[in-house]
Simulated assay, not measured.
Amino acid sequence: MVSTRRGPQPAAKAPRQRASRMTSDKRTREILAVARDVFVTHGFHATAVTEIASRLGVAEGTVFKYFPTKRELLNRVIEHWYGELFGDYTKDLSMIRGARNRFRYLVWRHLKTIREWPGMCRLIFSDVRSQPGYSRSPLHRMNLKYTGLFLDVVREGIGSGEFRDDVPLELLRDLVYGGIEHHAWGFLYRNTTLDAERSADQITDLVCTGIELRRPLEPSLTDADLCALADRLERVAATLRKA
């Protein structure tokens, strides 16, 4: 009789682990990084979402799953970039003393950012600020937060007695940042040079000279005072001659 009893059976294989899918946050960061490169290279209007998807190795629909429109994708790219800048600015400012030095740092850093990120700045100046509803958008609020660092520095200078207390803050902000952008226009659109160091020194000197608190001068001598002083000197001289 043949035994139906089976011999030792091989251990059952563990269920095959399925590769974990990329987390939503990681995928979002990856899309933003690639989209930034493509937007900077081609500009907003010439950028195709298909190229972004191709560089990522995913279907175009995957990009739209995270960002419903190309405009929203651009806005998120700019928001992410603003966040990186803001963190660097606040860290560096904490190590600088003196309102004029901090003022100069913010001017220099803004010029340096334009020089290092011309494509991003062109996107902001031409494609973001011109869109309807910008003044009510998160990007506008981030821009106000960004330039708010400058207003805080001026307020600190007023509090410490370095700057006058009658400075119109918003006007000064518009004057400085608007002047920087106008100054950098040739670099952004006509391929001229931009010397961030020299321009920062010049702008700081021009503006801070106007807003620095000037100490009252000692009263000047009148003609009568000068005549009296001359008479005294003559008497002293006559005395010395007699001696």
Rank of each mutant, 00 (worst) to 15 (best):
A19S: 03
W108H: 15
T4D: 15
R129Y: 10
R155Y: 02
L144K: 06
S137L: 08
T62N: 01
K65C: 02
A46P: 09
Y134S: 06
A196L: 10
S54W: 07
A230M: 11
F163Q: 06
D88A: 14
R55A: 08
F86P: 00
L213K: 10
R122C: 03
C208P: 00
R71L: 15
R36Q: 13
T28D: 03
M1W: 14
Q17M: 07
V49G: 07
A46M: 03
E234L: 12
F39I: 04
P8N: 10
D205F: 15
E116H: 11
I203N: 01
A48F: 10
V38E: 11
I124M: 11
D127H: 13
N143A: 06
G210I: 09
E234K: 03
W81Q: 02
A59R: 03
A35L: 12
G119T: 03
I114C: 02
V167K: 08
P15Q: 15
V207F: 02
K70N: 06
L151F: 02
I124G: 05
T62G: 00
E234H: 05
S137C: 09
A19D: 00
F86G: 12
K145W: 05
G179I: 04
P168H: 01
N75C: 12
L172Y: 05
S199C: 10
A196M: 14
I124P: 00
L123G: 12
T47M: 13
G7H: 01
I211R: 04
L144Q: 08
P15N: 11
A196C: 12
D127L: 07
V49S: 09
V154G: 03
I114M: 02
P8C: 07
R16D: 04
A19H: 04
R141A: 11
G161V: 10
D231T: 11
A59Q: 09
A99Q: 11
P219E: 15
G186S: 09
F103N: 09
R241F: 05
L123I: 12
F163T: 11
K65G: 15
E79P: 00
E218Q: 12
R29L: 03
M95N: 14
A46T: 04
T28S: 02
L32R: 14
G83I: 07
G87V: 15
F187I: 00
F187W: 00
G186N: 08
S199Y: 04
D174I: 01
H182K: 14
S94E: 08
A184L: 08
S24Q: 08
Q202F: 04
V40N: 13
T90Y: 02
G61T: 07
R71M: 14
R164A: 09
P132C: 15
V176D: 04
R155K: 08
Y146E: 05
E181K: 02
E79C: 07
R100D: 01
I124Q: 09
F103E: 02
H182A: 13
P8Y: 06
E30N: 14
G61L: 04
I124A: 13
A33E: 14
E181R: 06
E234D: 03
L171G: 14
R21K: 05
I124S: 06
G179N: 05
D92Y: 08
S126T: 15
N191M: 03
D231V: 14
E197R: 04
L229E: 07
